[in-house]
Design a protein around this nucleic acid. Structure first.
Ligand SMILES: [Zn+2]
Ligand SMILES: [Zn+2]
Ligand SMILES: [Zn+2]
Ligand SMILES: [Zn+2]
Lengths: 156, 156
DNA sequence: GACATGGGTGTTACTTTATAACACCCTGTC
DNA sequence: GACAGGGTGTTATAAAGTAACACCCATGTC
């Protein structure tokens, strides 16, 4: 993700879509859950649960408990609004909530941004590889570490 | 992995190959590291560091420290003898040490086995997807959850 | 053999990440 | 207003991973 984009739009869009999706499904996007979603979206870098917890505590002026955040994150992941990056123990906002997809990420080692892609070729290759071995795919995890375009162009 | 295979062969082979590879590279596969490798290979299910630690402690009659295991695992991963399964915080023996590859896994939700594959199609698809976005791949992670062939055939 | 070197290991303490158990409270329903 | 069920707060605890420092031991040098 370019460092030069209007991120307030990303956040606003994400919240608007979340409101719509949850309303449509009858899922309860409570004030707390919505605030956690907003904190996850504070950047395109995956954020750890305890980092979010700190933000939340600061916002509220008093210390929140880990479970508060973990429960909100669990809900958000279930609703497909947030993805968990396994290799980082961290969470990032979904770029296309509502669409059926499992999440494929290009994670930059330099800037930390995790770009979500939904590449049909990758999905198809995994399905083919699994099918050839009689394996039934339920949830593919693809997390690619490397260097994003802008960090290659502007090494510091 | 079929439940019906002579797993002692898997273990023996893994240790033999590890001896050869480390000798060839001048890497020191010490007694401790070799024992940890053997414990990782005790099955085809990824094992957590603390599970290995327990085995090791039992073997030695006294409690070992976590660092002991983590350091051995770090060495084994560096040498490509063991892979870490990010989505499980666990470790599994490499099926093809010596070959250059990054590790792709089909992890069965039922029996827990992690079958390592090195599917060229998956690798190529990831490279293509990344290249199309100007992303330079360093370390791809592919961990597919689902049901292995034998667990589909013999649901319990 | 004495000695310096460096990697490997042991030990203690600690941090980070995640979950269990249980009480309370809000919201909508009858 | 009583009730049921999901959401939240609180406390305690488990699981996973790391830092700092001392010691040991194999190796090579003099
Ligand atoms: Zn997504
Ligand atoms: Zn970058
Ligand atoms: Zn391998
Ligand atoms: Zn299975």
């Amino acid at each position: 993700m370019s460092a030069l984009h209007d991120h307030t739009h990303c956040i606003a869009d994400a919240l608007t879509r979340a409101d719509a999706l949850c309303a449509e499904r009858g899922a309860r996007l409570t004030a707390l859950r919505r605030r956690v979603l907003e904190l996850v979206w504070s950047s395109h870098r995956p954020r750890g649960a305890y980092a979010i917890l700190e933000d939340l505590s600061q916002q509220e002026g008093k210390a929140a408990a880990p479970l508060t955040v973990y429960r909100a994150l669990e809900f958000l992941v279930e609703q497909g609004l947030v993805h968990r990056i396994e290799s980082l123990n961290a969470y990032v906002g979904c770029a296309a909530p509502g669409d059926v997809h499992s999440g494929q990420f290009l994670v930059c080692e330099a800037c930390g941004d995790a770009a979500e892609i939904d590449d049909p070729g990758v999905g198809a290759a995994i399905d083919a590889a699994a099918a050839g071995r009689g394996f039934r795919v339920q949830r593919p995890t693809v997390e690619v570490r490397g260097l994003c375009k802008s960090c290659q162009e502007n090494p510091r």
